[in-house]
Nucleic acid binder design. Sequence first.
DNA 1: TCAATTTCATTAGTCGGCTAAACGAAGGGA
DNA 2: TCCCTTCGTTTAGCCGACTAATGAAATTGA
Lengths: 159, 159
Amino acid sequence: MGFDYSSALTHLMGHVMKLYRHNVDLLIQAYDVYPGQPPLLIRLAESDGQIQQELARKLTIKPATMTVMINRMVKTGLVERRNDPQDQRVSRVFLTEKGRRAEKAVREALREIEETCFAHFTPEEKVLFRRLLLQMHTDLEELQSSRHASAEICKERFE
Amino acid sequence: MGFDYSSALTHLMGHVMKLYRHNVDLLIQAYDVYPGQPPLLIRLAESDGQIQQELARKLTIKPATMTVMINRMVKTGLVERRNDPQDQRVSRVFLTEKGRRAEKAVREALREIEETCFAHFTPEEKVLFRRLLLQMHTDLEELQSSRHASAEICKERFE
DNA sequence: TCAATTTCATTAGTCGGCTAAACGAAGGGA
DNA sequence: TCCCTTCGTTTAGCCGACTAATGAAATTGA
């Protein structure tokens, strides 16, 4: 009973993340970059010509999502696909010149927003904040895998 | 330059929120409830028969999004629309019996996950965590409105 | 060598969010 | 009264994420 969702910390956290994303959007749309694309641009700038599966793994999204995202970014001219002569299954993704320029601007925008977000945090608070987030992450993964495990047991029972 | 997006706190925070949402999904899908719907169910349980605009305001989503969400929930039998005899423009939204049962289960699931998230936080850490999130929220809103203001000035200059 | 399996990518269909434009009802002013 | 505006909702179309099913190339094994 007495669980007040409105005052939950996760609720507040989701709210802040939404506001964060909105701020990012406002700053990047001038470069033909859409909200989900900054991480991909940044990963490509770190290492051009990666294959889609690897990129999907790094962004923690599914390969199918990556395919669609890249299609759109090809259309807006930020990236291009090239076939790998060694393996015809894979396609390697490269930044175009426009993509390279966009990446610089977008990373600068992210830096600026990051700075704003934590402008009033003391160094100790930032360290603590990170530790708390990592703690949440650990416990959520634990919860997920424990549920997964019990589902497996259920499955076994029916086989 | 030296902005390493991968080690940004916002990046970590987004990652944790994604994991959170995934955990929620796993627990609620048994009740025909989809990821965005729990907040709506909970708001309706607090006060049945609200109009869509009011609900959209409370969930901080756009009325158009609310229309589509409610269409789906009507289809899965969680809620129903009724016309307001006083004002033919609005439609009031009510929980069905199934919706009421789902709301109870979903809120319990959210409570459980919330508990897991913060199981290893001391009371002081929870208080601090909330304060830090609110600080971020304040600064992000400030950033957004300042940019809005400068955009207005730009606009004026061209008129 | 050739069939079976694995692997990477794509397509189709769904949900959640948005904007822009349209539509219908309610209200207000001349 | 009638037109104009405002207001709530809806529709269409886009991006981001997912799953499930399919396609096509590479690899494995008999």
